Simulated scan of single mutants.
Amino acid sequence: MNLVTNFKLLRMARLHIRNLRELSTLMRIPSARSVIGRQNFILEPLAGRELIRVHGSEVIPFLQGLVTNDVSRLESSNGPSSMYGLFLNKSGRVLYDTIIYRTNNRDTFLVECDREASAEFRRHLRTYRVRKSIDIDSVDDEYSTWVMFSPKSEPVPTSPNPDLFVSPDARLSSLGTRILAPTDMNWSQLVKGYWRNNEFSASPASEECNYQLLRYEQGVGEGSLELPPGKCFPLEANADYLHGVSFQKGCYVGQELTARIHHSGVIRKRYMPIRLTAPIGSNKDVTSVAGAKLGRVCGSAHNRGVALLRIEQVLNGRQELMVDGERCYADRPQWWPEDMPGKRRMAFAE
């Protein structure tokens, strides 16, 4: 009996000592507590985007005559590292939405566009090249486009890695940061190469948290499906609020009507975020309860979407909105200016 009791006491003592050792080990590991408080970001490849290289000694005047923004600002050492710009047709309607990146070579720019429209976009550029010494080609086999953003809207840190081109989104800070990385760099390699001291953590995108939903929550359309070529004007796509139009630069294709709309102050429709209560079928028209058409859904996922809607009827009139017989709700983007001059003030007042 005494032997059995002694064995039990010995086993309990060993178990107690082991627990104490494990506790002291956890307390000595500095990362055990710091990981919990570490900022977490979402890192996602943008498979639907492609990079086009535009190179030549006349690249600035060439792009200036085609894009809505002032590309010459990229030449300045104090200028932005990237900018948002739209390419229009002669009627002033949007053909392609792009982000233009400067490089170490002042005669070379990388232009990010929708992958599905890449071939047509390159043909569009070559049409206006005429006799200029400009080379236009895809660098899809060299660079891939990624996006990094914070679900809590925290600022994304920069990276010291020289192999990466890192630039805040040229439209809205809430859309995160664009990363141009070599195509042979996968997700794990990019995470390890982005932060050298592991101050932050990154997670892959999920169905509940991804870049598309982030854009829909902000009411930002992107790509040929959400910005169908030739269907809307740049100011309807909020290009003026997304820093995508310069009203001081010289002429470009579609500039006359864009300037006229801007100076008149009459913009009846704009892209807005919507909240859905049911999946959308083939009919994407947004109507009032009485059946009056107020706009159209341009993209949706889960319970979020982006729609081109009539501003005054939707926001001022507080219309009850319907899509496919189901209720939906439109939101005024927080990043829209609060005070608008002239006729636009009435359209944007809540």
Rank of each mutant, 00 (worst) to 15 (best):
F109C: 13
A349V: 09
L66N: 08
R28N: 02
M12L: 13
R28G: 10
L242Y: 03
S34V: 00
M185A: 00
F7A: 15
I311H: 07
N197C: 12
A170Y: 14
L190N: 01
R122T: 12
W336Q: 12
D70V: 07
M340S: 13
F165A: 08
L213W: 07
V59C: 09
S264I: 08
G92M: 15
N104A: 14
I52K: 00
M83C: 15
F233S: 03
D107C: 11
F87N: 03
L321G: 09
I280V: 15
G342L: 07
V266K: 04
G37H: 02
T277N: 07
A205N: 11
I280P: 00
D240E: 15
F247C: 14
R344S: 15
I136Y: 10
Q248G: 05
M27N: 13
M1K: 04
I134K: 10
L110S: 05
Q39I: 07
P61T: 01
A292L: 11
N161V: 03
R122N: 10
E320T: 09
L235C: 10
E222F: 00
P45F: 02
T287G: 06
P30A: 09
K269F: 04
N78Y: 00
M83D: 06
P341Y: 03
Q39H: 11
H124Y: 15
Q189Y: 06
L10H: 07
K343V: 05
T177W: 04
A119H: 12
S246K: 06
D240W: 12
F233Y: 02
E199T: 12
R344T: 02
A278H: 13
S31T: 06
D70T: 08
S188F: 00
R332M: 13
N19Q: 11
G79P: 10
L213K: 01
R123S: 12
M346Y: 11
I179Q: 02
P341I: 04
Y241C: 03
G230T: 02
Y241Q: 15
Y128G: 15
H302Q: 05
S133F: 04
R345P: 13
T98D: 09
Q218R: 05
K343H: 07
R260S: 05
K269W: 15
T287I: 13
T68E: 08
L88P: 10
L9D: 11
A278S: 01
N69T: 01
